[in-house]
Structure formats: structure tokens, C-alpha cells
Design a protein around this nucleic acid. Sequence first.
DNA 1: AACCGCATCAACCGCTCGTGT
DNA 2: TACACGAGCGGTTGATGCGGT
Length: 356
Amino acid sequence: MGKGRAPCCAKVGLNKGSWTPEEDMRLVSYIRKYGHANWRALPKQAGLLRCGKSCRLRWINYLRPDLKRGNFTADEEATIIKLHGLLGNKWSKIASCLPGRTDNEIKNVWNTHLKKRVAPEQKKDGGKSKSKSKKKIIRADVLVPSPSQSSTTTTINFSSGDSGEQSNTSKEEREQEQEQDKIEIPVLDPCFDFDMLVDPVPGSEAYCPAVSAPTSPCSSTSPACARGADALLDLPDIDIGPELWTIIDGEYGGGCTEAPPPWSNAAACEAGATAATTTTDEEGKEWWLENLEKELGLWTPSEDFHLHVGPQCQPGRVDPPSADMEDPVTCYFQAGSTDATWQGPEPPSEVISYRK
DNA sequence: AACCGCATCAACCGCTCGTGT
DNA sequence: TACACGAGCGGTTGATGCGGT
């Protein structure tokens, strides 16, 4: 760009590198309460010595409550391979069709495992895959969307090849080229049968009859998407309690391309989404926070998060706290034997690990 | 036990895109 | 229309873990 804007992390004194449990708690607690409408302002308001970018990344890749942890299933891997054939290195798009998985995670899995696995196969078919993927799209165009897909479509531009590729053609030429290559396909519904793109069976029921129609477009965190994908991929049960699904289901029906966490600021995503205020929401929030605390090794059965909330950490306060104001996390770490220094037990390595 | 090399993955960096003014 | 800014994306890096010698 060359606009002379300094990188967001250029400020001196900001933390870099691995996140500490306290930072995590602080970030989670803040987002839980105020949402993440403005990443740039968030760290200051949350009292974090991090840049907004870093906070966003940490949240999206690691702290989001709807993240799935653990190894990728064979079905997930197969889906990634298929989608990569279709989309190339569009990790975020691929991730949007794998509920609970992040683009970063998928990118890592691809680079470390799948690429190696796919490479020999590509050698076998003599590099046909590229042209094949384009052919697939043409086939996709003539697919008759199921009722579940309604008119929801997504436009994928295949002309640019890998990201960052700049051609020397004029803007007009490029636009024309892009228009030709732009094909609207049914949005990557989890029920979408990718094999159809290659070998559609005339008259076959390609859209997973076993599953009821998703009610919202496929999005990274849409519960509808998650349900549909579960059916498609036969995924193992996600370790998310029914309360959370209830909350998510109830609050974020459609229109929001990235469903916010149930407690987030409505403005962060969808104007119509109401802030979590019901009893169920509160229970869900507590439930999730409790789980996070467990993951962080901060939770014990006798503990009650609210016991740590001091007089200056009143629930229901709507204005974001200033950096120096006591917030729930500060209270949390200052209360009782749990002070600001990390004294908890080692977190379970398979859930959340912290590098030293 | 110590060393080495490879694998993994969280986090950073630089860039583009979208939006507001 | 041009510019500024924030958000998001994809590529890359570096710390850590682990298995082999």
C-alpha cells in the first residue's frame, strides 16, 4: 500500500509472542461483556498490552467458544482436500465450511499433512487437477439447488489464481476476465455434495436427505451449518453443551455472516441481534466461562466466578471499562488466593497449552 | 543422558479489501 | 473521486515437542 501507516504492533511496550492465561481471561471476559466491534480499541479498553490484530487472532484462532479442538477427522480432511481443489489457498472460505475450525488451523493441517498426501496423487494424474477444478465449477453452475439452499449463492472468483497474483492486463480486461470466471454456485452448504461437482448422478438426491434444511447460510460459526456439517461429515460430537447451542440458535438466525458469540455486542455483527439478557443466556455464558476456566486450570468446584466480582465489577454495566478500571478479570486475579501471577495448575495440554 | 533433526502450530507480518469521510 | 483507516486474509516464522540415534 505504501500509505505510510505504521503497523498496528509498532507501538513500543506492547506484548508479543505467546499469550498468558491472564491475557486470555482478560480478552475473553471483555469480549464476553462488550463484544468485539472494534478490535483496534479493544486492547486498550480491555487493559491488554496487545495490538488489536493480535487480540483478534487469539480470539478467532484459540478462544472462540465454538472452536473444535483435537485432531481433524478423516471426513474433515477429505473436505479440506476437496475444497482446496476447488478454492485453492482460500483458507477462510474453506474454514467457513468446517464448523469449529479456523483458517489458521486448516492452513497448518494442509501444509503439514494434507499437502504431502495429495502431492503424490497429483503426480499420478499428471497435474490435471487445475483444469479439473475449473470444470468442477462449471458443473456446479448447473446444479439445481435444493430447497434448503434457496436462492443463497456465493460468488467465487477463480480467475485470479492464487492470492496476490497480479496480472499485467488492463483493469478493464481483468474485470472482464473476472466476470467470465465468476460463477455463482450455491453457497457452500454443509449439505453440498462435492462429489456432485465431478460425478453428478442425474436425478440423485445430492443434498443429504437425512438432514433438515439449514436455516441460514453456511458460516463459520453458524449452528445450522454445524448441524448440517455434522450430518455430512459424520463428525464426532462437539464438546459444546446444549445450553450453548440453545443460545446460539436462539439469537443468530440469519443474515450475519459471522455469528457472534452469544454474549457479544449486537452491533458487532447484526443489528437485529439482541444482547444476551435472558436467563438461558446468562446460564450459557456462565457455563462457557466456567468451561474456559476449567481449560485454563482456574476453576475448582467450590469456586464461583461471581464471588470474585467486586463492587467495582458490577454486572450489567454497559460502558466499556477504561484500562485502569477494575474489571472482572482483574477482580478475578486479585481475589482470594488467585492473584495476578499465574499460580494455577498446569492446564491440560490437550486443551489449551501455554508456551513458556 | 545428550544431542540432533524433523514436525507441529501459535503468532506475526505484510498486504489487500471494504467502508467511511 | 481520493484518501484514510480498520478488518481480514494468506504466507511465513520461530518456539516447542518429540522421536531417533
